[in-house]
Each structure stands twice: as structure tokens, then as C-alpha cells.
């Protein structure tokens, strides 16, 4: 079933690409948005469609750290380790997130829900230390706040263990925003 969906999605992707002559990076971005990573078979199809040498795709995909060749979690968590964030204690924040989720930066949780990335700078140094959950910016984070942010997540994960579709993090992120 999932394969069928993927095939359908990739066809749509290719049709979109055929109509708009995007640059290579933009095309890879679209694929990454659809699949959460760059699957090999989709890259092969793209190369055939666009008449681009396969290695060129691989070169660009490996050059930018934003592209991933392995599946990423449904929810992306970015912690900033830039100078301003570092000075204001982002290291402790990252450690706390690692502890809560049980993964190191660059890894994905086993259930495929979360992936944690430590990035160099998000360009919002006034909000340091900064944590971005699914493109929602959380400013002035402290390790204590991380606990509150992910507490709801873990609880709802436990409750939703039966159902395969877990949307617990969106709940958690939403609750954080309100506070």
C-alpha cells in the first residue's frame, strides 16, 4: 500500500517537475518534502526524466547537509549551536532533548517519529537559545522548558501506542505555543 502511494507521489512529482524547469536543488527539495528523505529509486527516475547524470544528483545530495539519504522522522527538531545560542547554553538544551528523546543529534527515534539535528545557526540570534520543532520557533529555551515541551509528547505517545498514526507531537508543540 505504502509503495503504491509512493509510486503515485513520485509520478506526481515527476509531472510537476516536467512542467516547471526547476533547478536541481529545488527538485531535490521537493522530493525531500514528499518523502522526508531522498530515496534512491526516486533519484533514478528523476535522472531519467531530466536527463541528468545520476552521480550529479548524488553529488548535490551529499554536498548539502539539508538533504538526507536515509529516512528522517516525521517531526524535525532543530537545535541551534551557533555562537549566540552556545553562549546562552544551547549545549545543555541539546543534551536535555537528547535525554528526553533518547537520540543523539543527527539520529532518528526508532519509531520514526522524531529526528534531531544540531544546526550551526538559524539566523535568529536574538532568540537564543533556539529550538525549532516542525518549523515552529521556540525562543529562549532552557533545559527545564524542554522537559515541559516533551512531557506531553511522551505521555501521549504512551496513550497512542495502540494506534499507528500518532500525532502527539503536534499536540505538544501546540500546547507549548499557547503557554
Amino acid at each position: 500500500m505504502r509503495q503504491l502511494q509512493e509510486q503515485k507521489a513520485s509520478k506526481e512529482q515527476n509531472n510537476n517537475n516536467a512542467s516547471n524547469n526547476h533547478s536541481l536543488v529545488t527538485m531535490l527539495h521537493q522530493i525531500q518534502e514528499t518523502y522526508n528523505y531522498l530515496p534512491e529509486n526516486v533519484l533514478r527516475e528523476l535522472a531519467k526524466e531530466k536527463n541528468i547524470p545520476l552521480v550529479d544528483l548524488y553529488r548535490v545530495a551529499t554536498f548539502y547537509s539539508l538533504f538526507s539519504l536515509t529516512p528522517k522522522g516525521k517531526h524535525k527538531i532543530l537545535t541551534c549551536t551557533g555562537t549566540a545560542c552556545h553562549v546562552r547554553g544551547s549545549e545543555k538544551v541539546t543534551e536535555e532533548i537528547s535525554r528526553v528523546l533518547g537520540i543523539q543529534p543527527g539520529e532518528t527515534t526508532e519509531d520514526g517519529e522524531y529526528s534531531l539535528e544540531a544546526v550551526n545557526c538559524l539566523g535568529a540570534c536574538a532568540l537564543a537559545p533556539l529550538v525549532v520543532v516542525d518549523e515552529q520557533y521556540h525562543a529562549n529555551m532552557t533545559p527545564a522548558q524542554i522537559g515541559a515541551l516533551f512531557n506531553g509528547v511522551r505521555k501521549s505517545t504512551c496513550q497512542d501506542k495502540e494506534s499507528s498514526h500518532c500525532h502527539c507531537s503536534s499536540v505538544a508543540v501546540g500546547s507549548k505555543e499557547k503557554s
Binding site: 547524470p53 548524488y58 554536498f63
Partner: peptide, 15 residues
């Protein structure tokens, strides 16, 4: 092609 970047740069084939 050149694969990767910086100190991880190497020469390789597709995947």
C-alpha cells in the same frame, strides 16, 4: 564524481 564535502570529500559512484 566528488561526493560529500570538506574533509569527507571523496570520489565515488551513485550511492
Amino acid at each position: 564524481e566528488f561526493i560529500g564535502r570538506g574533509h569527507e570529500l571523496r570520489i565515488s559512484t551513485f550511492f
